[in-house]
Amino acid sequence: MMTSECMPVTLEFGGGAELLFNNLKEHELQLPNSRIWTVRELLIWMKDNLIAERPDLFFHGDSVRPGILVLVNETDWELMGELEYEIQRKDKIMFISTLHGG
């Protein structure tokens, strides 16, 4: 696929969420540019293509499970439109599992 037809997006995982994604904290993606991508669609794509194991520990319904914080360019996704946020070129989306230990 030509670069111009792709949208580069970075996914980051932390707090243990990376364990479900081949233990990789950072994933560089090239999403097909043929349509608009919302976070909702990204999550579906991740479920089908990216998660390596135990999807029930990450997804819940059409969203993420309680205890996972989603950040779009280092900002809480709640301030960005949550599932409806339209992903832009070079966006960085983080999925952070909250820690409880001490």
């Binding site: 243990g16 499970r65 309680p66 205890g67 599992s97 909250t98 409880h100 230990g101």
Partner: peptide, 20 residues
């Protein structure tokens, strides 16, 4: 406000299992 619902217990890691 951030976490209205508690995490499912099987997703909670602790220092005794995951180490620290």
């Amino acid at each position: 406000c951030l976490f209205p619902d508690p995490p499912p217990p099987n997703t909670v890691s602790n220092c005794g299992d995951a180490g620290v």
